[in-house]
Design a protein around this nucleic acid. Structure first.
Length: 866
RNA sequence: GGGGAGGUGGCGGAAUCGGUAGACGCAUCGGACUUAAAAUCCGAAGGGCGAACAGCCCGUGGGGGUUCGAGCCCCCCCCUCCCUACCA
């Protein structure tokens, strides 16, 4: 007779997914809702929402989502009002490229892709409140993105400037920064160059200090804080003005962090794009300098940095004058060079070169045979300029007039004073952070809610005219000359100012892909509000996000932009907190196996076969090496959750994702390991259900008993509590793999003890497993006779008392080496422990002299002998 | 060059305060059940010497140190992955 009552994940999973949806099991109520329970604390756990790509969700994306889902489910069981939403970051370049590629409109491909993502996530059994789903490319969402851009505009934080943008001659188009990698187009690998165009900029630099300081307030990984700090790159120093010979009306300003080395400056360098370059170049050098500048502009960043280790440059024929020296002195005259190792984008785009104390300047001076002067004496024993080396550390000022003898920090302060007294310099703080280039000459993004009037002024579109919808265009490809696609729809671009009735022109640029993700956590709090982006009531209740989980890839850009907007909104009185994300966690990357041939070339997975634990090219004897690397379409090693769910079920999939290892670690996806998780569920099922009996659960599990436990049941009581305690701990430490291991051990122990399991133990086991294998646990919970969902059941408490044991195993060491073990009473005194331990290792102690006995009650006894 | 994370069996990983290294799972091997297989169950297993479930030695990338005791703390070195890249 076949076993009828087996674990059938597919039937169970579709049933519970349907019931959760019908019953609104995961609906989160806002304070203004009728069913809101103010007695519960709130918990907002957020995933970095995905761009819904055409190839669908893969198991790497799912890792963080499964983890937050388990966390959200557990918090709900612990009595929190949980906000756990999901949506789509669907504007931006990838969507547009995909649409161009497939020849369909991005609105159409986005709808298809989001439908696929939604279905995939539902199949995994996510406990999202789907009624809060948002989509950044839908007018009902971007209406508010446009409104919040208006808040920045009104605050004076949006401005237009001529800024170089990436231009790809091969593709005849402007590319966004994200599309250019090392000076080459991401698609096609064509060389790109920078061209100046009028662009919208957001003044994120005005918030640099607050973005830096408020990192102290939040619970983020150290590594992310460091990356943000470095990206902001605050550096203190001085701006110094150098007079230029033959240029009466303008000085050449430089930024330096080491004004104390001013007397060691032996030449000046300006960037090839420096605005003053044209005016200061001497006639006899003009041709050479112009050639050099042109060549530099054509170089990609890659060539200007990586490959340009050998420094290049050209003398301009002109001299600057050291402001702290007598202009008559010969060494006060500094030749001005142009070189591409100086970047226009940082500081002032010009430097004073101090080859004795700056590696880059030293390299340049060596190359072009320029003088090196020592002005900082290194500490004793450190080679300096006197030894023909470059010393960039701190020391004592020498050869520096009034600075002589001062240690570096004092010399810096004194130099700034001297410059300020002479009116030729001042203390200055510079940031590496630049203002944010916020416009794209692209179609698939939020249109700017702006009107350009004939008098040249720019006004915000009135709020009641929002959303300003994207026109539906047949041809939305970027245009050959770099102008925006929206400019090709004159009916859209030409309009009238509703306030004055005068003709006006719309802005034809669109916002970058990052815009929609700059405030989406706020919209999730109040997603259907059509009066405002979100209500103050919802924001003050749900904010800030308690836990934000996503990949470390977004360590800088997204998180910095999001923090910036949040602060602007905070200043505008729209949000109550200074920071959006209280705690942040980065999940690791899921890697995959790939195969290399003897020349280390990668071989696509479908050309590989395994034979006897080794790997060969299909149908040949060419042996391949298995390596671990990223999942990539080109390698054919991308794993889709749908396939895993079809084979093993969603609960097994979820368990395996979490069982692979700590959430933060990168680890390889190994299909061979998945059945182990399924076998665990099979065993757990049989622990509660007799497969040969049609009864929903084993009959004795329907008995409630308050009789004192004894024997195997008492043993299992301790085991279940031990497991619960380890599960709790695994959530605290984001290593759910250890919690799952504890639950596995419990099932193994229960399996060895036949019918000893009690109903209460089974219930607590299921409750602890429920966030990880929710369908499985709902089904058995229901079979145990519960009417409410396990998703709303209370989280099981650890009964500390039952963890205590009367005896424990005492380890006995001799000279630190394990020599035996013995069972001792929990209450045994140290002297008794020592005596009992000595018996165990009597043979090893025989004839030795006892120097010392280390007794650690609860752990071990160590005899030190000679 | 700078910054970050890491290196533990054949594999993924445990070891929470400096105290039994290798939990749990995979793969492997042996056994039970079966006509047989699958599934399932039970058992073995870091390496070495040994008939041994006796005993001893070695073992957490390498070398040193602190300690009764080090995967964990300190110093030096090697390797891997990720991010970043002339920031004056």
């Amino acid at each position: 007779m076949p076993a009828e009552n087996r674990y059938e994940p597919h039937a169970i999973e579709s049933r519970w997914q349907r019931l959760w949806e019908q019953r609104g099991t995961f609906h989160a109520s806002n304070p203004s809702d009728a069913d809101f329970d103010p007695g519960r604390p709130k918990y907002y756990v957020l995933d970095m929402f995905p761009y819904p790509s055409g190839s669908g969700l893969h198991v790497g994306h799912a890792l963080g989502y499964v983890a937050t889902d388990a966390i959200a489910r557990r918090k709900r069981m612990q009595g929190y009002n949980v906000l756990h939403p999901m949506g789509w970051d669907s504007f931006g370049l990838p969507a547009e490229q995909y649409a161009i590629q497939t020849g369909k409109h991005p609105a159409e491909t986005t709808a298809l892709n989001t439908a696929n993502y939604r279905a995939q996530l539902k199949r995994i059994g996510m406990a999202y409140d789907w009624s809060r789903e948002i989509d950044t490319s839908s007018p009902s969402y971007y209406r508010w993105t446009q409104r919040l851009f208006g808040v920045l505009f009104e605050a004076g934080l949006a401005y237009q400037a001529e800024v170089p943008v990436w231009w790809c001659e091969e593709l005849k188009t402007v590319l966004a920064n994200e599309e250019v990698i090392n000076g080459r187009s991401e698609r096609g690998n064509h060389p790109c160059e920078r061209r100046p165009l009028k662009q919208w900029m957001l003044k994120i630099t005005a918030f640099a200090d607050r973005l830096l300081a408020d990192l102290e307030e939040i619970d983020w990984p150290e590594s992310i804080e460091i990356q943000q700090r470095e990206w902001i790159g605050r550096s203190e120093g001085a701006e110094v003005d150098f007079a230029v010979e033959g240029l009466e009306d303008e000085a050449l300003s430089v930024f330096t962090t080491r004004p104390d080395t001013l007397f060691g400056a032996t030449f000046m360098v300006v960037a090839p794009e420096h605005p003053l370059l044209e005016r200061l170049v001497a006639d006899e050098q003009r041709a050479a300098v112009e050639d050099y500048a042109r060549a530099a502009a054509a170089k990609s960043d890659l060539e200007r940095t990586d490959l340009a280790r050998d420094k290049s440059g050209v003398f301009t024929g002109t001299f600057a004058v050291n402001p702290l020296m007598d202009a008559g002195e010969e060494c006060a005259r500094l030749p001005i060079w142009v070189a591409d190792y100086v970047l226009m984008g940082y500081g002032t785009g010009a430097i004073m070169a101090v080859p004795g104390h700056d590696e880059r300047d030293f390299e340049f001076a060596t190359r072009f045979d320029l003088p090196v002067i020592e002005v900082v004496q290194p500490p004793v024993g450190t080679p300096g300029a006197g030894d023909g080396a470059c010393f960039s550390g701190e020391g004592t000022a020498v050869n520096s007039g009034l600075l002589d003898g001062l240690p570096t920090p004092a010399a810096i302060a004194r130099a700034v004073e001297l410059l300020e007294d002479g009116g030729t310099g001042r203390a200055r703080v510079t940031y590496r952070l630049r203002d944010w280039l916020f416009s794209r000459q692209r179609y698939w993004g939020e249109p700017f809610p702006l009107l350009h009037l004939e008098d040249g002024s720019i006004t915000l579109l009135p709020e009641e005219d929002l959303p300003l919808e994207l026109p539906v265009m047949e041809d939305f490809a970027p245009s050959a000359e770099g102008s925006a696609p929206l400019a090709r729809d004159p009916d859209w671009a030409r309009t009238i100012d509703p306030r004055t009735g005068r003709p006006a022109r719309r802005d034809t640029d669109t916002m970058p892909g990052w815009a929609g993700s700059c405030w989406y956590w706020l919209r999730f709090m109040d997603p259907h509000n059509d009066e405002q982006p979100f209500s103050a009531e919802a924001e003050s209740y749900w904010g800030p996000v308690d836990l934000y989980v996503g990949g470390a890839a977004h360590a800088v850009m997204h998180l910095l932009y999001a923090r910036f907007w949040h602060k602007v909104l905070h200043d505008a009185g729209l949000v109550s907190t200074a920071e959006p994300f209280q705690a942040l966690f980065n999940q690791g990357m899921i890697q995959a196996f790939a195969y290399q041939d003897a020349t280390e070339r990668l071989v696509p997975t479908d050309e590989v076969e395994a034979r006897g634990g080794r790997f060969f090219r299909v149908g040949s004897d060419e042996e391949l090496t298995q390596i671990v690397t990223k999942m990539a379409k080109s390698l054919g090693n991308v794993v889709n959750p749908d396939d895993i769910i079809a084979e093993y079920g969603a609960d097994t999939f979820r368990l395996y994702e979490m069982f692979m290892g700590p959430l933060a670690d990168s680890k390889p996806w190994n299909p061979r390991d998945i059945p182990g998780c399924r076998r665990f569920l099979d065993r757990a099922w049989r622990m509660l259900v007799d497969p040969d009996d049609p009864a929903p659960v084993r009959p004795r599990l329907l008995e409630e008993t308050d009789a004192a436990l004894e024997g195997d049941a008492l043993f299992l009581e301790r085991e279940v509590n031990r497991a619960l305690s380890r599960v709790d701990d695994s959530y605290e430490r984001f290593n759910l793999n250890t919690g799952i291991a504890a639950l596995m051990s419990f099932v193994n122990e229960a399996g060895k003890r036949g019918g000893a399991l009690t109903r209460s133990q089974a219930e607590r086991f299921l409750s602890a497993l429920a966030p990880l294998a929710p369908h499985f646990c709902e089904e058995l919970w229901n079979r145990l006779g519960h009417t409410g969902p396990i998703a709303h059941a209370p989280w099981p408490e650890v009964a500390e008392a039952s963890l205590e044991e009367e005896t424990y195993e005492l380890v006995v060491q001799v000279n630190g080496k394990l020599r035996g073990r013995t069972q001792v009473s929990q209450a045994a005194e140290p002297a008794a422990l020592e005596a009992q331990a000595a018996e165990i290792v009597a043979a090893q102690l025989e004839g030795k002299r006892l120097l010392k006995a280390v007794v650690v009650p609860g752990k071990l006894v160590n005899f030190v002998v000679r």
